[in-house]
Amino acid sequence: MKKLTLDKGDFRIFWIKNAVPILLIIFAISMVFVNRTFSSWDNISNIINEFAIYGITACAMTTAIICGEFDLSCASVFGWSTVLFCLTCTAFGVLPAFLITMLSGVVLGAFNGFLVAKVRMPAFIATLGTMTAIKGLAYVVTDAQPIKTENETLYAISKFNIGGITIVPLVFIVVVVIFIWFLKFTKFGRGIYATGGNYEVARLSGINVKFYKFIVFVLLGACAALSGIMYGSRIMAGWAPYGSDLALYCVTVTVIGGTSLMGGNGGVHRTIIGILFMGVIFNALTLLSVGGSMQKFVRGIVLISVIMFDAITSKRHKA
């Protein structure tokens, strides 16, 4: 029988692989002692409700990054979706509005996918263009005005909660489970990793790399639309500039979680850690009465520290 021991090397590997979650746990435990409110259910439910909306798109962004791609336009798809959802919700009701907005997100994502996979435009340029065009479209449709909806069913949905947890985190959990499942346990997921890991090798191995490049944008469009719907349902309003920090947020939590921007590795389960990390840090800063200017500075420092840590430990791990 093999003796269960943890030598120095094992500990180092464990630390390298789990540094961010360990730091998150240490930080959260410290906060429990520093500020009693942090561990109150009101506050925990608040953190969960807050990160879930952007978290949905972050899952799709992680998948795109694993596939070696990136989408700047998700913020505009988000803003456009809040507008479209509110407009159609008032005109046709919640379910048709949901379906129309999701379809719109899929179509916009497919257009990005077409530009990148078929036309072979660099994702940065293609999505920069569509980002501007989609935001412009939202401004034109709404005459640049914020759109309200007073749909009673939507109002009831926005108020629905179980112990303070609204419907948004429940949707987020479903999305996370789906993403983790297909990335880890399906051929489709392996194709995404292979495409992002080495495009040419994957192509020569017979993997339909163009399909994977295309589909990650479709997923991103759909998830950005779903996030927009969730946001619209929370505040009962839509406007083109809503969610303008979404792309940056998604990349930040993906990197903090440990998914490499070079593609080919990482996972949505890691991004959840990044989302939790950011959610807890933001919440803690507010609870610690840290002012807005200092919050920005601290957030930047934390981000640099985590990325620097990841870079150094990964380098050492490879060595």
């Binding site: 807050e50 500039p241 920090d245 507010t286 807005g292």
Partner: peptide, 10 residues
């Protein structure tokens, strides 16, 4: 305490 709402209602 003043914090930045970043024009984000949520």
């Amino acid at each position: 305490t003043i914090v930045d709402g970043e024009a984000n209602a949520d």
